[in-house]
């Protein structure tokens, strides 16, 4: 059963055909990686899933409903959460406040004019946020300024914020880009743990082969805007077309 169904998607920027004839199907409760060389159209494709871009042709269905033409916040409310290449968190707020915001968004929807109630006395939301911080091992940092944390911690917080909304599909855009080896391994462990503990589908765009091969159950290789192959990690490793297009001689 597939949760994300991409059919014949094409996108052109001026003279550049960024995506053409992309067909892709992400199975529910799987980890699906999309890899490809620079400029292959990975980020463009991801942006088509979350409402940042609208493809010129084709369709993107999430759980039987089209996401095209919907705004990012509407798509999030449908159950898709996105983690960015550079962690996007609320840097001016404390770690706890960062966690409170997605909890409010999950319970109260896209807009709720509650100008008189008190954040502090909302037990339900407060407990939920603290529980999530504990799951992320960040409870001791609750009063810290989010901007003051290390890159790895910011990433952990961002993933925690996404998970607090119990999304059905988690999209990760190069989650370990620019990270030190230790932080990368921590992130891989965290994602593995998430996968084991939750009913969640993860779609991941990644450059780092170490990350891809330790997480993915299925891999789509994108080259020049078109999927080249889709297969299991083991088959992808040995695939001649992939070696040629992406992995090069060293792989």
């Amino acid at each position: 059963m597939s949760i994300l169904e991409v059919k014949d998607v094409g996108k052109r920027f001026g003279g550049l055909q960024a995506l053409s004839d992309v067909n892709l199907s992400v199975a529910e409760n799987s980890v699906h990686a999309i890899i490809g060389p620079n400029g292959a159209g990975k980020s463009t494709l991801l942006n088509c899933f979350v409402g940042k871009l609208i493809p010129d042709t084709g369709s993107v269905m999430f759980d039987g409903q089209s996401v095209l033409g919907r705004k990012p916040f509407e798509i999030n409310q449908m159950g898709i959460s996105r983690v960015f290449q550079t962690p996007e968190i609320f840097g001016d707020l404390t770690v706890l406040e960062n966690m409170l915001i997605p909890c409010f968004a999950k319970r109260d929807g896209a807009f709720e004019l509650n100008a008189i109630g008190s954040v502090q006395s909302d037990k339900e939301i407060g407990d939920r946020a603290m529980q999530m911080l504990e799951e992320m091992n960040m409870a001791d940092k609750r009063d810290m300024h989010a901007a003051a944390m290390s890159r790895g911690d910011k990433r952990r917080l961002e993933i925690g914020m996404c998970l607090s909304q119990e999304p059905r599909l988690l999209l990760l855009d190069e989650p370990t880009a620019g990270m030190a080896r230790a932080d990368t391994n921590n992130t891989i462990d965290l994602l593995k743990q998430i996968k084991n503990e939750r009913d969640i589908t993860i779609a991941i765009i990644e450059h780092d082969m170490h990350v891809v091969f330790s997480l993915a159950e299925r891999i789509t290789v994108l080259a020049q805007g078109t999927p080249l192959v889709e297969d299991t990690p083991d088959n992808i490793k040995g695939h001649p077309k992939v070696r040629e297009a992406y992995l090069g001689e060293t792989a």
Binding site: N76, L93, I101, F111
Partner: peptide, 18 residues
Amino acid sequence: LMLRAVKSNQQRMNYTGL
């Protein structure tokens, strides 16, 4: 809290369903 979130990061807000 949401208004302070607007000041801090609108992108994250949009992708948090707000």
